[in-house]
Structures are given as C-alpha cells and as structure tokens.
Design a protein around this nucleic acid. Structure first.
Lengths: 165, 165
DNA sequence: CTGTTAGGTTGCGATATGCAACTAACTACC
DNA sequence: GGTAGTTAGTTGCATATCGCAACCTAACAG
C-alpha cells in the first residue's frame, strides 16, 4: 500500500529534504549552546575562559562544542603568541556567514517581545542602526511568506506548497 | 575582588546578555527538531502524521515539540473541520516571522557546501529566485561583520567589540 | 621552587531522547 | 450498527546527552 498516493506533498517534502542544506547545518549549530557560543564569538569573545564566564556554560560542554565548531569549520583554533597557555578561538569566513542567521533570530526575538536589547547593531560608518533583515525579490522588494513559491532548478514550479492555508 | 577590571568586554557582554533577545528565542527554537519542524511547517506540513512521516521524528518528541511551539506562540493548534480526528498545526504571524531565520540558515548551508538543494525559493509573481539574505545599512548597502559596531540605545558606542581581531 | 592561570578531562547523577507498544477518539465500510 | 482502520497522542524502558564538581597538566609569574 503506497501511502504516497494520498500524500503527494509529503513525498515531495521528503525528496526535497534529501538535498536540503538545513539538516546538516542544524547538526552543526542547531542546539542551544552552539548558538550562544556563536553570539559570543560575534561579540568578541575569544578565549575558553571568556566563553565560560560570559555564557555560564559547563566546561566539558564548552570544550565539546568548541571542538565540534572547529571541526565544522565555523571557528578557528590558534595558539595565542603572547601566552602559550592561551588558545584563541576566532570566526572563520564560514562562521562569519552565520551573522545573518544570528541577527535574524535576534531581530525576531526583539520584535516578538523576548526582551528589548540595550545595545543595537549599527553601521560602523555612520552609526545608524542596520535594517531589519527580510526576504527580498531580485529587485529588492520585501516578500512575505504568501508571496513565495518553490521552483525546480530549471524554473518549473514544484508540488511543494509554502505553508498554504 | 572584581575580576571585571581585567575583563571589561566580558562584563559588557554579560550585561548585554541580560536583555538580549537571543537566549529566550534559542530556548524556543534553538534545538535540532524545532528547526526542522519549522522548516516542515514553512513547506506546508500541517498534520501530526505529516510531520512524523516527513521528518522521521519519534512520536513522543514530536508531540512535546509541537506543544512547546504552540505554547510559545509559533504554531496554532486547530481542529480540522473536515475530520475531527485531525489537528491542524499552522504558523502564526510570529511563526512566519522565523522565515528569515530559516532561509538565512538554508542559504548559509547552501553556500558552504552542505548540499545544494533541488528546489529554490522564488518570488511567486515572476518566478525569479529570492535574493541572498544579508545585513544592510539604512540605505540598503550590504554590510560585513567588520563594518558593524554596537551602539547604546541613545546612539553612543559601547565597550562591546564585534569579533575584533 | 611555589603559587596561579588556562584549557581542558573524568566521574557521576539528572535529564532528554528514541523506539515500540498501547490507548482513545473518530471515520469509513459493509 | 458492528468492525476495521486512521489520527493524535501517551507510557515504559533502554540509551545518549547534560551539567556540576573535582581533578589534571602545561605554562607562566615572582
């Protein structure tokens, strides 16, 4: 009994999930501490003890997460030349690419009442706050969820609905 | 003895963390399955069995996560009028707001080699792919991490570095 | 050489996860 | 209207992960 016949969009979803970049990405940063470590790194935390004191994370968990994020290419692990006991964890280009994700989450939390932050991210040049991150069309128009559809690589639309009502 | 004297940016970080929207947001969606459930919801999954079959998640975990996301105001839980056994989980406006986060993560994964997706999100009007999400200045200029700084609510810059080298 | 700091690792109890089986409503069929 | 099947869970149990505290080693500082 192929259950797929009665559920075309589920089988489309499963097929799309096979090549979706989200599951592997979630494997790397989709857990509580990874996100907070990332936020710390974006805010200038660099040493093991800084992360530990700044986040209040257990040392063994921090050690494990830093190792995984280094293995995943998000962080870089270097010896501090000024003190050979110290290790500097810095963001790689790949790790910096997560800025949009972290900022989008931050703005979402801000908008939906999970606490208004005391500091705001601003343009270093003129000090004006950054824009709210949004999904944009090719010409820059902001797009809502209803304005979107999924298309195949060649441009044909697919069976995947976008949260259709 | 205040250890803060030797670590000014850590104490600035801890102070900023108190009102940061990220930790509560992470509490809600910062775990493996919450992200994937959200992706499913954005792709049109609506019923318990659809999520279960589509994601391969254990039923008790799914039940727990759906409940938490409903409690957090991300999902809405309604009875299906056409079949009173069924329950429809749909995104609230708050949940739809997470589209930017999920899409940013997806684009990041795509860019950094975690699998190229077979389907692409496009503008429903003209079928052209959406832009890459990025941080923008007030005038729309794209900004990198080095171009940014933190400012206080009143516009004064703070002690928080932005991943300074 | 002694004390301290940085960055871990180890042991252990608490918590979360995943699988399979069970239940309680409801629907569809005959 | 009795029976089978579907939907949305819950429960029990084995395993994996988490967090805390303590311990460890290498590198300083005096």
């Amino acid at each position: 009994m192929p259950a797929d016949q009665s559920t075309p969009h589920i089988s489309a979803f499963r097929k799309a999930a096979l090549t979706c970049p989200i599951p592997p990405a979630v494997e790397l940063i989709g857990e509580k501490w990874a996100f907070l470590i990332l936020r710390g790194a974006l805010n200038g935390l660099r040493h093991f003890e800084e992360f530990q004191a700044g986040l209040g994370i257990a040392r063994n968990i921090l050690s494990d997460r830093l190792g995984k994020m280094v293995a995943g290419g998000i962080l870089q692990r270097d010896a501090d030349p000024s003190d050979r006991r110290k290790v500097v964890y810095s963001l790689t280009a790949k790790g910096e690419g997560l800025l949009t994700v972290v900022l989008a989450l931050r703005q979402w939390g801000e908008e939906w009442g999970h606490g208004a932050p005391g500091v705001i991210l601003a343009d270093g040049r003129d000090g004006r706050p950054v824009r709210k991150i949004c999904v944009q069309a090719h010409d820059g128009r902001p797009l809502r969820l209803h304005d979107l559809k999924w298309v195949d690589r060649d441009g044909a639309s697919t069976a995947l609905p976008t949260a259709a009502e």
